[in-house]
Design a protein around this nucleic acid. Structure first.
Lengths: 197, 197
DNA sequence: AAAACTTGAATGATCATTTAAAAAACTATT
DNA sequence: AATAGTTTTTTAAATGATCATTCAAGTTTT
């Protein structure tokens, strides 16, 4: 309890501020949002954010880390019950359109992060790592599903499709329908794989 | 000649500065790039940009307009010689991966513009107009190629795929291979349409 | 000579970040 | 369970840096 007590406020603030960052970036844009605006989302001050995160860049990094972990969790959950290679491919697709993850605010933050990642070392690193992870999952699952010559082309097509869906989701004015996105993704994957051999 | 002369320098600067904007945004990022950096790309000063474009926002808008026009031109050229609906669909796809258009710097500017468009009225307008145009082209060509029930799903899939390819291209460190991108796009479109009925 | 163009030096606004001092939460002791 | 001491948290105000934009005085072109 002693230790827990020490950590509690810090953890609460950490979560609050990351949530506030996603909301504020969605409202005002990654480039335009100020520390004060983020702070106001949860009724605190910019100085407080610096107390907990040090810099704006760290805050953005921590926010992106939360999204990456959300994606990873969604993926591992589905992986745990997948039996066949096809199941596992669908697990990867579905994870990307998980209810908890596939929201306008999340896709929007992701898109804006993506656009500015190349210009900030710490963000570029996160981006690279995640990209490599998704790619290797796709490669592994496609190995036993499509012939060797077409594998990379199909993997790229699938990844581009998914990125494109997020991009569109990021601009949406209405709430997203994650279940529908999963169906569409399966349909598209089905078409791409059906004739690939 | 008088009139031409009057316009010449203005036109040259206009072109130079738009090119400089694309390069500088690629180097430094849409959010981080300064007027001075853009000016330095062509050895002039920030004040000069303001003389010609008034504001940074106008400059960005003009830059995006050039890309939009490049895309439109590439499309119309190919449309002119397309005979069948299938030809016209391929024309739309190929235009998006035209040699003049599909470069890292262009895709990068496009991506960054895309991410920040929702937060600036004039840019949002451009974005909306372009999006509507591409969508209506796809709808028109798919009308006679795929059954009614699947048309929207396939159109969305194709558009998302193309957006995703741009997104990846924007991050590339090597020069792009536009011809290869066109081939891939045809291959993907082929798979999507083949089994859709 | 007039118009168009250029630029170095202000201007003024906006921000992230730091500081210092106060408030709150927690711990240990009695 | 009250209290004094310690650490953690909060914030208003200062700091300092960065920029887009404007200005005014030049230069070049027509």
């Amino acid at each position: 309890m002693l230790f827990m007590g020490r950590q509690r406020i810090r953890d609460i603030r950490h979560d609050e501020l990351i949530t506030a960052t996603i909301t504020a970036v969605h409202k005002r844009g990654y480039a335009a949002v100020t520390m004060t605006e983020i702070a106001q989302e949860v009724g605190t001050t910019a100085a407080s954010i610096n107390y907990y995160f040090g810099t704006k860049e760290n805050l953005m990094e921590a926010t992106m880390l939360r999204l990456l972990n959300l994606l990873k969790t969604a993926m591992l959950e589905r992986y745990a019950t997948a039996q066949t290679p096809r199941d596992r491919l669908i697990a990867v697709l579905d994870a990307n359109f998980d209810d908890r993850f596939y929201t306008v605010a999340h896709c929007n933050f992701w898109m804006q992060f993506w656009a500015s990642a190349p210009y900030t070392d710490s963000l570029a690193r996160l981006h690279r790592i995640n990209r490599a992870r998704v790619t290797s999952h796709f490669r592994a699952e496609l190995r036993s599903l499509v012939p060797h010559e077409r594998r990379e082309a199909l993997r790229e097509a699938l990844q581009c499709y998914m990125d494109g869906v997020w991009l569109e989701a990021a601009q949406s004015t209405a709430p997203l329908n994650a279940a529908h996105a999963r169906e569409e993704a399966r349909y598209v994957a089905g078409l791409l794989l059906k004739n690939s051999d």
